[in-house]
Amino acid sequence: MHASVSDPNLPLVRRLEAVGFRAWPASSVLYDGSWQVRLTGSHPSKRLNCVVALDPSDHRDIALRIEKAGRRFEAHGRPLLFRQTPLSPKLLIDHLAAEGWECFEEVVTMTCDLTTLELPDTMDHLPTHDIGRFVDADITVHETDPALKPALAEIITSIKPPTGLFVIEDPETGPVAATLCVQDNDLAGLMSLAVRPDKRGNGIGVEILSTALRWARMRGARTAWLQVVSDNEPALALYAKMGFTEAYRYHYWRKKAGA
């Protein structure tokens, strides 16, 4: 099992959270104090539809603020989710637990020093500028609902920092891997990396990851980051092999049915 960081670097957490928001932007972002309320009616991604508290000391009027957020999520037809990071107030988490909420899905945020990483001197795959092509590839390799294509295209179009869209294709069977790399000054975020299930274990993951990291480093990025669900052992092994180490973890909270 991947060892958890017991004492995360809070300034680093704050910075990675900030670039993460820019790398995967919600269509609606409001603030209640330091609580960020993220909603995206067109896409069900948990990262795009959750409340994230960004100050450990901001724990006033917890019950009232949860109720207020709940009404907003209900209006958007979304279940109210809280995303717990090392920046979340302890009193908020204690309140959720006491009120019958359940914690689910642990995600590991990892970083890698690009200045010391050994990468090929050449890029085998140049980024595409065709968002439609990339979205089709992403949906194929993730095996997600094609109906989400317009929403995913809208999300990618709304990313403000420079973004590289990478696709590896087989001439006969189509897309086999895809990822996007968002370069935000000296930080580069790897998003939505996946290899088609029937093509895994053939080095394609290393190939597309190396290409994206090389692109980011050529543009001045010094540190790469990514997020992966903690029970995805093959992905964790791949990222560790590439030099990534854990920075912190986050979890989601939802109201138990009937609670």
Rank of each mutant, 00 (worst) to 15 (best):
F166A: 05
D61F: 07
V29P: 09
V182T: 08
E102M: 09
A221V: 06
A237L: 11
S27C: 02
N49L: 06
R15K: 13
G203Y: 12
F82M: 08
L152D: 11
V52N: 09
D55T: 05
T111S: 15
F82T: 01
A137P: 00
C50L: 06
L96F: 00
D145V: 02
A151I: 03
H76D: 14
E106Q: 12
Q84M: 08
C50M: 10
E99L: 10
P197F: 04
A240H: 13
V206A: 14
G189D: 08
R60M: 11
V37F: 08
M191V: 11
S192H: 14
S34P: 06
D7R: 12
L180T: 09
N185Y: 12
W215A: 01
E106S: 13
V5W: 01
D121K: 11
P120M: 10
D113C: 07
R196G: 01
A75S: 13
R200Y: 05
T128M: 06
V37G: 07
E143I: 10
A247V: 04
V52A: 11
S192Q: 15
E17G: 08
E207L: 13
F244M: 09
I204T: 11
G258T: 02
D113K: 06
D94G: 07
P44H: 03
W253Y: 15
T140E: 14
R38E: 06
V229H: 10
M242T: 09
A18D: 12
L16V: 02
N49S: 03
V141A: 00
D124Y: 10
R78E: 12
K90C: 10
N9V: 07
V108K: 10
I66N: 02
P150I: 00
L96A: 06
D55L: 00
R78F: 04
A177M: 02
K255I: 03
D7I: 07
